[in-house]
């Protein structure tokens, strides 16, 4: 456990000046900020439609969710998986890392966990900023009725589901990035995966839930049709199983990989 914590500390220390880390903070800030500016400058049009408060929150958060969930989240996850591994590939530091008096599994698990935590941080910020900026819009223009409905439950459920649905992609991409040190293979495979995922999920293919790349899209499409009542749906289970299986396989790869 001590090994895991200090490895995690070290992961944070190593990457605190890298794009991967700052993207987790900047991405939600920029996207939510732009949407808020868009709403603010089109205030009259939005207000004229006289949406009920819950629908207004739905539209406001849906704009971020739509862009985010389908495209940016999967790519961000792919980039994170690439980035935590690439820091060792690029500097040829795998062997040094595994020559430290630390449990090998902890070193690997800390890397994975660090990627998970950054994705969690990013999604948390999306939810929190959506909430905060909605209220900010209301403060700036009281004709918005953001104060009349609490979106906390809806936002937290949706973003939690998005988070869980991204873990499958993370584990698959984590392995790909472990095996190959270059940028193109993980990105190329990831890109094809995401496009395929979006197509099969939005076409409603019945086995789409078996493809990890389709899980975030499935979360968003299911949300539209059935509402976001259940957190643990079939696609979430599938994502978690993928995550667990590939996480374990990844350990065996890294334990062998480190020495070459």
């Amino acid at each position: 456990m001590r090994s895991l914590i200090i490895s995690l500390q070290s992961e944070f220390y190593k990457s605190r000046k890298t794009l991967a880390f700052w993207a987790a903070i900047v991405l939600p800030l920029v996207i939510c900020g732009l949407i808020t500016i868009g709403f603010f400058s089109n205030a009259e049009k939005v207000i004229a439609r006289n949406y009920p408060p819950d629908a207004l929150w739905g539209i406001f958060s849906g704009t971020a969710l739509g862009i985010m969930g389908m495209l940016i989240l999967p790519f961000y996850v792919i980039f994170m998986a690439f980035s935590v591994n690439n820091i060792e590939h690029k500097n040829d530091t795998w062997k040094t890392l595994f020559a430290q008096p630390l449990n090998k599994f902890s070193i690997y698990a800390a890397k994975y966990l660090y990627a998970v935590l950054l994705i969690l941080l990013s999604l948390f910020l999306f939810a929190a900023l959506t909430f905060a900026f909605g209220h900010l819009l209301h403060l700036l223009n009281s004709q918005f009725k953001f104060n009349e409905f609490s979106p906390v439950e809806m936002l937290s459920k949706l973003y939690l589901k998005l988070f869980l649905s991204s873990l499958g992609i993370l584990s698959v991409q984590f392995i790909i990035s472990l095996i190959w040190g270059d940028f193109l293979k993980p990105m190329g495979i990831g890109f094809i995966g995401v496009i395929m995922g979006i197509i099969v999920a939005s076409k409603g293919w019945e086995y789409a839930y078996l493809i990890p790349y389709s899980h975030p899209t499935l979360v968003l499409t299911l949300n539209k049709s059935k509402g976001a009542h259940d957190i643990f749906t079939r696609d979430i289970y599938s994502s978690l199983i993928y995550a667990l299986v590939f996480f374990i396989i990844g350990y065996f790869i890294v334990a062998r990989k480190s020495v070459k």
Partner: peptide, 8 residues
């Protein structure tokens, strides 16, 4: 070992 492993 080999080249010094340094985070550039």
């Amino acid at each position: 070992v080999e080249q010094p492993a340094i985070y550039s």
